[in-house]
Design a protein around this nucleic acid. Structure first.
Lengths: 121, 121
DNA sequence: TAATAACGTTAGTATGATACTAACGAGTGT
DNA sequence: ACACTCGTTAGTATCATACTAACGTTATTA
């Protein structure tokens, strides 16, 4: 469960990150360095991978994203607008708040797009 | 209704704004100018006031704030943490989303602190 | 009335975040 | 041996934002 999610494409080449983020490699390197300083990413065999805390953080953002998406859809929003709006706040809303909301909206197991919502973990 | 809210202390002196925002007057002026460029504020008799769109925007943010606060409290959060978290997102979440959420959580008329949640207007 | 204080405003400066280009070095494959 | 790709570094540019210092206008007050 969440197997594909927790990897999120990692480990990844710097070039891939750059093109995913639509920036040049030096900018991507800057970003990766900042992640490393926070202990969220590491370099291994020339590839960039998430550390354990990095994976946890990524999962946490996914949890928030999918929870908020679900809330919006249950409230009558379309899947696509819900996803967009969720992207605006998924890195801001604390996981604990999302877990509370999740419980309130009936502990759905999947987001409106059918992707799994991480649980206890 | 919302009479006190819609004013929010405006019209206000630049100095008051500066001290509320904890910046120096030149910085406050810069902020006010940007609000003016967006048509949200105006100067009148040496005082800074919100324009009609400015008031609507302020009310919209209040709606979002109090809605999200209510959601969090209904979900089991404390008033204070709810208020804090709401402040992180009240200027990001679109009013339309908040209105949908508001309906879903039972159209409360007041936020957890007892302040009115703006309705149709 | 003259001096002073308060306020808003301007100009110039500093900082931090973030992106870029250009150039270099190491490793890879033809 | 050469060319390519990749990561990296250094230097530069831009933008947002805050600040200080100085100035002019208005209001207050001695």
């Amino acid at each position: 469960m969440l197997e594909e999610d927790s990897k999120l494409g990692f480990p990844m080449r710097l070039h891939e990150i750059a093109s995913l983020l639509r920036v040049k490699p030096p900018s991507a390197l800057n970003i990766v360095k900042r992640l490393q300083e926070k202990g969220l990413a590491k370099t291994r065999d020339g590839m960039i991978a998430l550390t354990e805390p990095g994976i946890r953080t990524a999962k946490s953002i996914l949890l928030v994203h999918r929870t908020y998406e679900s809330l919006l859809c249950q409230s009558g929003a379309s899947k696509n607008s819900a996803c967009q709006e969720a992207s605006e706040v998924d890195f801001i809303i604390p996981e604990e708040d999302a877990r509370k909301i999740l419980r309130k909206i009936g502990d759905p197991k999947y987001c409106p797009h059918g992707k799994p919502i991480p649980d206890g973990d």
